[in-house]
Amino acid sequence: MSTLHQDALIIDGLIISKWERAVFEDMRKGGLSAANCTVSVWEDFRGTVANIARMKQLIRANGDLLTLARSTADIEQAKKDGKTAIVLGFQNAHAFEDQLGYVEAFHDMGVRVVQLCYNTQNLIGTGCYERDGGLSGYGHEVVAEMNRVGIMVDLSHVGAKTSEEAILASKQPVTYSHCLPAGLKEHPRNKSDAQLRFIADHGGFIGVTMFPPFLQRGVNATVDDYVQALDYVINLVGEDCVGIGTDFTQGYGQDFFDWLTHDKGVNRRLTEFGPIQNPLGIRTIGEMPNLTAAMERARWPAPKITKVMGRNWLRVFAQVWGA
């Protein structure tokens, strides 16, 4: 591990791995200071509360490795203590159900990032795999309430029209926490140059993922291809509003992906990902130092590396959470 990686604050904008000791140990091995960890996708209010309770129990049980992040100060303290700060995040606002008051309730529980939709339509708006009707009336109220309490709006799996309307509606920076540029590969989950510029022009933030189905070279990609994708986005919008959002799914098998990609209606499939294998060199969270090394190989200056590896996320989190 290079001194640069060791000293840097490392923040992963999205991980949806199997929450267990082995993954937490790998987070420490990789030098992660913090990660936005998914605790809700298709679960309702009650199921999500149960997931949060379990995650908090895991944080206590693995207190030698982890701490809960309610603020950016918690992230900076975790870095000092050699721990990983767990940011509780949702990949779907389904758990808000039709109760606006649940937004603040979840904030009180520690939730700090919520994606509005996951692939398909819900009460708030439309996902990226369906015809997009835009942000609903209730969706406008949810965005305003998330702004008020200090939960970041995530639009990674959200449709183009709903995303644009959410970006315009939000008084705080919003994010594509884990996306890739359509300019490198056409895919419903990838964002066009115009979309990437639009979110950046409105003070938003872009986390670049390395999820293989969305990468130009798919399962043949390497850590250097991931750095190339980061540079593509940076060349469009500048290095101050770009970070990493790996979308690690470590510890999970096919059953999990079948559950993730289901559509409305029993036994309906929305999409098939094919084989999931992260880029060579960064197959596991523990290999995160290889990403910093690849940035150095690409002759990135140290300030650019430290910003993209975590400092940018910290800045934007401070802005939204401190609102």
Rank of each mutant, 00 (worst) to 15 (best):
K185F: 00
A22G: 00
N312V: 10
A323T: 11
L314I: 05
T175I: 05
E141S: 15
V158A: 10
R28I: 06
T261N: 15
C117I: 06
H157Y: 14
A8G: 04
Y252A: 06
T72C: 11
K56F: 01
A302Q: 11
T48H: 00
D81W: 01
P212N: 14
V143S: 08
P303N: 09
Q77M: 08
G310Y: 07
T120R: 14
E164R: 07
I285H: 10
M109E: 06
E164G: 01
G243M: 05
A294T: 04
W259P: 05
F45T: 14
M210H: 13
N122I: 10
F248L: 13
A22Y: 01
W313M: 12
G47T: 02
E272T: 13
G31Y: 09
W42V: 13
E76K: 13
E287L: 02
L32H: 12
P301W: 03
K264M: 09
F214D: 11
L116N: 07
T162L: 11
V39M: 04
A85R: 11
T175C: 14
D132F: 07
H140N: 05
M210N: 12
T120Y: 13
C241M: 07
I15L: 07
F24W: 15
F256M: 08
P279Y: 08
A194M: 04
A73G: 03
V114N: 09
C128W: 04
G101Q: 09
L184E: 02
Q57M: 10
G89R: 05
P303M: 10
K304V: 08
W259Q: 11
D132G: 09
Y129E: 12
L260N: 06
R46L: 05
H94Q: 13
K18V: 00
V114T: 12
F45K: 14
M55F: 04
H178C: 11
D26G: 12
P275N: 02
K185L: 05
D258C: 03
A78T: 03
L88Y: 03
A105R: 13
Q99D: 14
F248C: 14
D98T: 10
G133Q: 14
A35G: 14
C179L: 03
Q99R: 15
